Amino acid sequence: MRYPLAILAFLLAYSASGCSKNNGGTTSTEYALNPDPAAKRPGSIGIVGDSSDVVTPVNGGLVLMGGGADVDAAFKWMISRSGGGDVVIIRASGADAYNSYVNTLGKVNSVETLMINSRALADDERVAGIIRNAEMLFIAGGDQSNYMKYWKNTKTMEAINYLLNVKKAPVGGTSAGCAILGELYYSGEKGSVVSAEALEDPYNPNMTLYAGDFLKAPYMRSVLTDQHYVARSRQGRHLAFLARMLKDQGIGAKGVAADERTAVCVDETGKAVVYGTGSAFFLATDNNKIPEVCVGGAPLHWNHGQKAVRVYKIMATPQGNGSFDLNSFDEPGASGGTWHWWWSEQGKLRIN
């Protein structure tokens, strides 16, 4: 068939514009002329190293970091357990600064940061696939209420739990990332609560606590973490969190807390060692020691002869110090630190 010159010119221009659709709704010409890696790796805000997937042998481990300056030794500890595979950083705000930082600490195939800041992204199978293929995962700081809001009950949550319990790759988190690694967690979704407020009224509206509905890290059953611990005087609110869990849920909750520049590294057997320059704390409650007064509008009174909660404190060192067994939260397996008793007396934290 012969076309008039005007029609022929139109057809040629239409073809050159690449308007023939493929199944994804993007033109084949666009793929050829403008390859976009983000289209295949949604959520990715940067990657260093080889983007092709590798498989390396891994050893399980958990890093609970207290925020502030990162602890180099803890990242090296995780890298050694990753077998030098693919490292993935996940967050809901911020940038990709961890990529170059982690890449300088040890030999890995790649480091990639995913910005997962919507439930649509968190439920994207391609995002979940990147996480499942990781040999090391680190959850950055930020706002743990966003992590709960965006990630809970999504494919991202399933992928993290897969790494923790099936693949058994090392997983860590700092600050907000650490806050969600306990089976019990404080979300901060209505605003932060400080120790004085929590002890004065353990049912303060900002005391938003959850149990067993998010991440399932090994050895973190019935554990509630806290961070920036000494720097922000959070010991009192942590005690109030545990009192609420015991009073409301009947859970003999445990606590693991790290100060800034401090990391608790838990190996595949549940043994914890503390790296950095601050301190870590391990809190053990007793099911038989229900708080004497834990009601709304009244100061927390949890005394039991000044022996309400037993606490083990370990001072960190850059080379790693102490030992604590998260299987028992008791004297066997505890070394390099000191035992203390904590209690609340009419809303005031006391330490012996």
Rank of each mutant, 00 (worst) to 15 (best):
I139M: 13
G177K: 08
G182H: 09
L137F: 02
D123P: 00
N161S: 01
A120L: 09
C178N: 14
E158T: 11
N99F: 10
G142S: 04
T174F: 05
D124P: 11
V166I: 14
K152H: 12
G129A: 12
K149R: 15
S118E: 02
K149S: 15
L137I: 13
E189I: 13
A120W: 00
T156G: 01
V108T: 12
N117P: 01
T156F: 06
A120V: 10
K155I: 12
N165M: 03
D123K: 03
Y185A: 11
S192M: 12
K190W: 06
R119T: 15
F138S: 06
Y147S: 08
D123Q: 13
R126E: 11
S145Y: 14
K167R: 15
G141R: 09
N161P: 06
V127A: 06
E158V: 01
R119P: 01
K190D: 13
V127M: 07
A179R: 12
G191M: 11
L181Y: 02
Y101G: 05
Y150P: 09
V171M: 00
A140G: 13
A128N: 04
M136V: 07
L114A: 01
K155D: 12
A128D: 08
T104S: 15
G106F: 06
L184P: 10
Y101F: 14
E112I: 10
Y186V: 04
A95M: 01
D124T: 10
S110D: 01
A120M: 04
R126L: 12
M157Y: 00
K107P: 00
K167V: 10
L163G: 01
Q144W: 07
L137M: 10
L137N: 08
L105K: 12
P170D: 03
A134E: 10
A120H: 01
N103T: 00
K107T: 15
Y186R: 06
N103L: 03
S93R: 13
K149Q: 14
F138C: 00
E158F: 00
N99K: 06
S175Y: 12
R132F: 07
A128G: 14
N161M: 04
L114E: 05
A97Y: 14
N153C: 05
Y150E: 09
Q144C: 04
V166P: 06
T154E: 05
G129T: 14
F138K: 07
A140D: 15
Y98H: 10
A169F: 08
G129S: 15
T154P: 08
E158W: 01
N133E: 12
A134K: 09
L137G: 04
S192R: 11
A134G: 05
L137H: 03
N103F: 15
I130Y: 08
L105N: 06
Y101E: 07
V111K: 00
G106S: 03
M148D: 13
W151H: 04
Y162N: 08
E183T: 13
E158A: 15
I180V: 15
V127R: 06
G106P: 02
A176W: 07
V127S: 06
I116F: 11
A120C: 00
S145Q: 07
L181G: 02
R119A: 12
K152S: 14
A176F: 10
L121M: 14
S192I: 03
A95Y: 05
S100D: 14
A169W: 06
M115W: 08
N109M: 08
I180T: 11
G106D: 02
W151N: 03
A179F: 04
E135A: 08
V102C: 02
